[in-house]
Computed example of a mutant assay.
Amino acid sequence: MSDFIAAAERGLLERHGLADFESLWDVQMNAVDEPNTGRGGWSSVFRLELEGSGFYLKRQSNYLTRTLHRPFGEPSFSREFRNISRYLTLGIPALQAVYYGERNVDGDLRAILMTRALDSWTDLDSLLQQWPTLTAHQRLAILQACGQLARTLHAAGQVHGCFYPKHIFLRSRSGAYVAQLIGLEKTRPALFGWRDRVKDLEPLLRRAPQWGEAEVRELLATYTQASVDSGLVDSWWRRLDKRSQHKEVR
C-alpha cells in the first residue's frame, strides 16, 4: 500500500517537513495517554498542532489485528483507515484521515494514522452529563441528530460495532445538531437485517440512562422516518427494550 496524504493537508505537512513516514515517526511529542500494549507490540496517540489546526497522530509497532482474511495479522490502524475510507465513500459522517502509511523496519511492522481533531465538536458522553441543564429544544435536536446518524449508517449497509456515546460527536448548526462517528475499528457490513441494527443501537441506549422511553422514541422517529406514536416506532422500541433486558440479565 502506498502512503495516503489528504490533498487538503499535503501543503501544510510539507511546510513543516512532515509529509513522509519517517518524519512523522520521528517527530517528538507528548502522548495523550498511556500507550496500549499487547498483541506483541504497542500503540500510542499524540496531539499535534500545526498553524492553528489540531490533529491526532497515532503510531504503532507490531500491534496487529488477526482475522480470517488476514490470519497472520495487520496493523490495527490499517483496518481503521480502510473503514474511514469506506465511510467517506458511502457518505457516512465520520472522522477524516490526513495521513496513513506503514513500514517493515527490521522485522517490526510499523503504522501511522493521522486524523483531523474534532476540536469544534462535543462527544455525546459529555452532552449526556449536561443533559439536565440543556433546553428541551437542544435535547430534541441531539436525539434527532443521533437518529439521523444511525439511519445514514445503517442505510449504507454498515454496523458500527461500538455505537457508544463516546464515539458520537456533535456540533450545533443553525439551531440543530449534526453528528459524526469515530472509533471505526469494529465496523462491518450489516448481514442480518434488523437484528444487526438492533444489536448496533442497543448499546447506545444502555449507555444513555438519561434518556427515558419518550426520548428514545424521538430518536427512533428520526431513525425510522415515522411519527413518535407509530406502530413502526413501537416495534423498534420493543425490540431494543427486549435486548436491553436480556443484556441486563446476563
Rank of each mutant, 00 (worst) to 15 (best):
E51F: 01
G52A: 01
G52L: 03
S53D: 07
G54S: 08
G54L: 03
F55A: 00
F55M: 05
Y56E: 01
Y56M: 02
L57K: 05
K58P: 03
K58G: 00
K58Y: 04
K58C: 02
R59Q: 13
R59L: 09
Q60T: 07
S61A: 15
S61H: 08
S61I: 08
Y63H: 15
Y63N: 01
L64F: 10
T65Q: 13
R66K: 15
R66D: 05
R66Q: 14
R66W: 07
L68F: 14
H69A: 11
H69I: 08
H69E: 12
H69N: 12
R70L: 10
P71H: 09
F72H: 12
G73C: 03
P75H: 05
P75T: 07
S76Y: 11
F77Q: 11
F77L: 11
F77Y: 15
F77P: 01
S78K: 09
S78I: 03
R79L: 08
E80V: 13
E80L: 09
F81A: 02
R82V: 05
R82F: 04
S85M: 12
R86Q: 15
R86P: 06
Y87A: 09
Y87R: 06
Y87P: 00
T89V: 12
T89K: 14
L90P: 11
G91Q: 12
G91E: 08
G91S: 13
G91F: 10
I92D: 02
P93Q: 07
P93D: 06
L95H: 12
Q96K: 15
V98C: 11
Y99K: 04
Y99E: 02
Y100G: 00
G101T: 05
G101R: 01
E102N: 14
N104P: 05
V105A: 06
V105L: 07
V105I: 14
V105K: 09
D106W: 10
G107D: 08
G107V: 09
G107C: 10
D108H: 15
L109D: 03
R110Q: 11
A111S: 14
A111F: 07
A111R: 03
A111M: 06
I112M: 04
I112R: 02
L113C: 10
L113G: 07
L113D: 07
